[in-house]
């Protein structure tokens, strides 16, 4: 019985999250902007949580449930790569290699800059 109640709660909470997502898409649509609606929904929810319009308890379990299954939700889209067999050509390999190199560069640049910023912060704290 307690289990049952928990599941009903999760479903209801997912409905709330779904409403935010719909609202985000709706706003993007009427404003005609090139922006992902779900991010508008995320920012709206963040605002509501921050302003205590919506208590964390009202979405906590639903959000945890969805985030735990996040990887499952994008499987249908990744399967869509079957419509792009050109990725297996030489050009595809070059394309994939450039994603790899770009990512390595990003990790190095970000890591070094972040380490520099952190180092400066600790030195400032020591001076104080």
């Amino acid at each position: 019985m307690i289990e049952m109640k928990k599941y009903i709660r999760i479903v209801l909470q997912i409905c709330i999250l779904y409403l935010f997502s719909l609202l985000g898409s709706f706003i993007v649509q009427i404003l005609h902007i090139k922006f992902p609606g779900s991010i508008v929904g995320l920012l709206l929810l963040l605002g509501c949580l921050h302003l205590k319009v919506i208590p964390v308890q009202l979405i906590k379990e639903g959000a945890g449930f969805l985030l735990g299954l996040l990887a499952l939700f994008f499987v249908p889209s990744t399967v869509g790569v079957m419509n792009y067999p050109e990725l297996l050509s030489i050009n595809g390999v070059l394309l994939i290699s450039s994603v790899i190199v770009s990512t390595v560069l990003t990790v190095i640049i970000t890591g070094r800059i972040c380490q520099y910023l952190e180092g400066r912060k600790t030195r400032e704290e020591e001076v104080q």
Partner: peptide
């Protein structure tokens, strides 16, 4: 299944 992506992104606010 794909339709759950929107609410899942919203969940990242938590």
């Amino acid at each position: 299944i794909d339709a759950m992506l929107g609410p899942a992104v919203v969940s990242m606010a938590y």
